[in-house]
Design a binder for these strands. Sequence first.
DNA 1: AATGAATGAGGATTCATTCAT
DNA 2: GATGAATGAATCCTCATTCAT
Lengths: 194, 194, 194, 194
Amino acid sequence: MPKLGMEPIRRDALIKAAIIELGQVGSLDVTVARIAKRAGMSSALAYHYFGSKEHMFLAAMRHVLSVYGAEVRGALAVGETPQARIRALVRVSFTGSNFRRDVVAAWLNFYVMAQRNDQAERLLRLYQARLRSNLRHALRPLVGGRAASLADGAAAMIDGVYLHEALGTGEPDGARAARAVETWLDAAISGKAP
Amino acid sequence: MPKLGMEPIRRDALIKAAIIELGQVGSLDVTVARIAKRAGMSSALAYHYFGSKEHMFLAAMRHVLSVYGAEVRGALAVGETPQARIRALVRVSFTGSNFRRDVVAAWLNFYVMAQRNDQAERLLRLYQARLRSNLRHALRPLVGGRAASLADGAAAMIDGVYLHEALGTGEPDGARAARAVETWLDAAISGKAP
Amino acid sequence: MPKLGMEPIRRDALIKAAIIELGQVGSLDVTVARIAKRAGMSSALAYHYFGSKEHMFLAAMRHVLSVYGAEVRGALAVGETPQARIRALVRVSFTGSNFRRDVVAAWLNFYVMAQRNDQAERLLRLYQARLRSNLRHALRPLVGGRAASLADGAAAMIDGVYLHEALGTGEPDGARAARAVETWLDAAISGKAP
Amino acid sequence: MPKLGMEPIRRDALIKAAIIELGQVGSLDVTVARIAKRAGMSSALAYHYFGSKEHMFLAAMRHVLSVYGAEVRGALAVGETPQARIRALVRVSFTGSNFRRDVVAAWLNFYVMAQRNDQAERLLRLYQARLRSNLRHALRPLVGGRAASLADGAAAMIDGVYLHEALGTGEPDGARAARAVETWLDAAISGKAP
DNA sequence: AATGAATGAGGATTCATTCAT
DNA sequence: GATGAATGAATCCTCATTCAT
């Protein structure tokens, strides 16, 4: 029997390396060879496991999204009041593994990829739909019929702030970012606008 | 006899072609040959005028930014009340040449480019600084000390909505986008949050 | 306990798979992995048994040739008159396992292989020499001194018809092919030409 | 104005180099780089002119076929009697540029290519159809209704002899090859077989 | 001013082959 | 006996870029 069970380990290493390279190089032009090297293997092996560069990036994207999704679920489970749940939803985007420099940069590239790759587009839409849906549910008890429109706005706001961070030098400041979104949300919630 | 004054015409054609290609292909991988072809000339001539692909993209970026800047100035000049000026600032981002499908996509790629190219980064920062500054000035009469923070928020919101449009299928809807931002701004202005 | 006698079974499966793939893909570019997969094993095992891709192809070639040779011997044993023996020699080439679509295509590739591989060339020459020799022996009672030249012609004719079938669409028609050769042989035998 | 009119020269050089390499290496695995080098240019230029390796091979094939076609037309124009025309048709296949060692080997590879490439298959069929048609026309005055079947036989015979030469060592002997075919044809023409 | 010609360098992808278990 | 793991070495193809004319 050969050495077994390498596949998940290798895939994982490649996905992580891809995200780091994506963040470092800042574009989808990252070489498969570079990613493989960072992951400690030959590029041929990377192909063996992913079949193509594109598939590798999609896997990386799925990984980022699933981590995000898991943290969202975790945060929602903890929040007891609607306010707490909203706060949690916002904070998750700007915390921990979702707000690391390289992950933020990777996101930006996923957006670019989504313009050409259907799979990527679908993933991105899915993420956005979930985010909006979660926000809507949390907002409804507070603002009733305005929930939908506020949720859309909050989602845009989150992504906008996120985008700004993709450009900043130095490590992004999640606390500040979250506060910016929350400030707006508070104002909007208590505001009269539809 | 050599044709006189061809230079600005050629440069312009290339810049416009670059933006269109950028929007169409959706990534910086557009080839110089394709751009030149669309602009009706050989790629060698493109190099003659711009020296490198990067310079060409930077010129395209500057073009987009300067069009935007001009429209902002025009809009500010017309607006008489602070409210009108804010409204104008927001609308400009989602109108006409600033909100065409390809321009939006080009913009996204400028963000990517800014992660590696200092010039591009500077241009983008400059744009953001100006946008914030303009918003601040317009907001001060209405919210006083909260102007700075509201301006930052509005800027993020604008870019966030813009980003969402970059992904949407079909032509982006500028009126809806502008309304989304304005709704938020109104709420924030009348809100109690800092 | 290790299974006993797996070797011949595995080798056989690989050889058969190689021929099928050769016929299907239509060139020597077939990958070892594909052949092994079709044969129901890992490519590593294919290497275990054959040492190299080339050896595997040579084995396949030998297999095809030996099947052919066996059928020739069988046919000759049955034929009682010279005419019957000639007829048998011709028919064998266009019957059964020697005239299956994939075998015909494989044959064509053996010709290509023979241009670079000495072993392959030797095998091919051997086959041709035997075919000619058999034809000569069968022809001698009928045409005496013209046997050698007629045998050469018949051999060329057989291969030419065979080649044409390798290109045809649909399953090759052995009966028609055999008849074409026989018609010529009959004419030549009764002809005045040397 | 740049250096002009290189295209036909380069294409020609590449086609010729491709045929030589094909004959030398003996398989379609010839590297584009090798061909380009032999033709005295970079492989990038080869791609510039042909777009792909496949297209280059197809062009080579077309070249070989068109040379052959031209020689056939020339030979037919000269032949005055049916016998002379038949003789000419046979001899052309075994003379000059159609019977050079490398060209013969190239042919063999065209057959292989035809198994996977539709264009190649079409070209090969076209060649065969024309050869048969020419033979039929020349044979009709001599054998009437048997012309079609004799033409098919002759075509197979020609290709068969040709195939045998692809394997021979040393320069092929065209005269002998032609004689072999002619002997058969004479016998068949004067024979009683249909 | 303008362009066809030309290439070096690089990157994705494939595959025969080896090896540890 | 059997195979997943692993890679070096190609090879195709692309493209930014340069240059002679």
